[in-house]
C-alpha cells in the first residue's frame, strides 16, 4: 500500500504487467475441490485466489426465514485476514455485506428457486488472496460451484471488471490499476442471453467510454464463460471417458 503511484499505468499500449488493454489476466478455474460441500469451485484470476462453496438446497432454519413459494439464496462474501497487504480485520464489514448482497442479486436470476420452496441454498465466497476484481471473480466461481452442486440453473453467470487507466478503457483491472485508475466497473452477465445481472461503477466514464467498456466486458465474459464450462467438463468428463 505504501507504494507510490507509478508515473504511467500504460506504456506503449502495454499495461504494468505487460497486458494489452483488452487482455484478461491468466485465468484458472477448478470445479468440485471441496469434499464436504455439495458443490465447490476455485478460481485464480491473476493474483486473485478465491474459493466458492455451495450447500443445499436444504431445509431452512430458522423457520420464519422460509419463503412459502421459493427457495432462499444466501450469499456470504468474506475476505481472509491475509488476503490483502495490510491485515484485514476478520468478519463482516460494510463493504463485504454490500458485496454479499450484490452477489446474491447477480446469481438469483439464473436459479430455478421456485423448484425448492421453503428451502435454502447457501453460497460462501472466500477471498484467499485479493488483487482487484474479487466480486466478479467470486461470482464466476460461485456459479460454477452452484452447477457442481446440481442446482438447476438457466445459465452460468460470468463476471469481470472493466475500467479506465490513463484515459484508456481496459479489461480486468489489477490492483494498481484499480487504485490509481480513473474508473472501475464490475459487470456480471448471463452469457447465453447476454443479460446483465450486476453492474456497478466507481469513477467516471463518458457515455462513449461506457459503451466501449461494456463491449469489452462482454468480450471478457465470453472467455470466462468458456473457462467455466471447461472447468465443469474437466471434473466430470475424465471419469465418463474412462468407462467407455
Amino acid at each position: 500500500m505504501a507504494e507510490a503511484k507509478p508515473e504511467k499505468l500504460l506504456v506503449d499500449g502495454r499495461r504494468l504487467d505487460g497486458r494489452r488493454p483488452d487482455e484478461l489476466r491468466p485465468l484458472r478455474i477448478k470445479a468440485g475441490i471441496l469434499k464436504r460441500a455439495d458443490g465447490s469451485a476455485y478460481i485464480e484470476l491473476g493474483k486473485n485466489k478465491i474459493l466458492a462453496a455451495v450447500y443445499g438446497p436444504k431445509e431452512m432454519h430458522p423457520r420464519h426465514l422460509q419463503q412459502a413459494d421459493v427457495a432462499v439464496l444466501r450469499c456470504r462474501y468474506n475476505m481472509a485476514p491475509f488476503s490483502v497487504e495490510e491485515r484485514k480485520r476478520p468478519g463482516p464489514d460494510r463493504r463485504s455485506m454490500e458485496i454479499s448482497k450484490v452477489i446474491r442479486e447477480a446469481l438469483e436470476p439464473v436459479l430455478f428457486l421456485h423448484l425448492y420452496p421453503r428451502a435454502v441454498i447457501d453460497v460462501f465466497i472466500e477471498i484467499l488472496q485479493a488483487d482487484a476484481g474479487t466480486r466478479t471473480a467470486g461470482i464466476t466461481a460461485a456459479s460454477v460451484a452452484l452447477a457442481d452442486a446440481g442446482v438447476p440453473m438457466r445459465d452460468l453467470v460470468a463476471g469481470i471488471s472493466v475500467g479506465k487507466v490513463d484515459g484508456t478503457v481496459v479489461l480486468d483491472l489489477m490492483k494498481e490499476e484499480d487504485q490509481w485508475g480513473e474508473a472501475d466497473m464490475p459487470v456480471a452477465v448471463m452469457p447465453r442471453r447476454k443479460c446483465i445481472t450486476l453492474l456497478q461503477m466507481d469513477g467516471n466514464f463518458t457515455p462513449q467510454e461506457f459503451r466501449q467498456a461494456l463491449d469489452l466486458a462482454f468480450k471478457g465474459v465470453e472467455q470466462i464463460y468458456e473457462a467455466q464450462k471447461e472447468a465443469l467438463k474437466e471434473k466430470y468428463l475424465p471419469s465418463l471417458e474412462e468407462g467407455r
Binding site: V110, F112, A147, D148, G150, V151, P152, M153, R154, D155, L156, M190, P191, R192, K229, L232, K233, Y236
Partner: peptide
Amino acid sequence: VPGRLLAEGDYFAGEGTFLEGGKIFSAVIG
C-alpha cells in the same frame, strides 16, 4: 452443463431441462 442448448422445435422437455423461447436447454450438469 447448465444453459446448454439441447433441442429446438418438436421435442418434449423432460427432467433436468427447461424451455425458453421454443428452445430446450439443460438446467443441470449431467
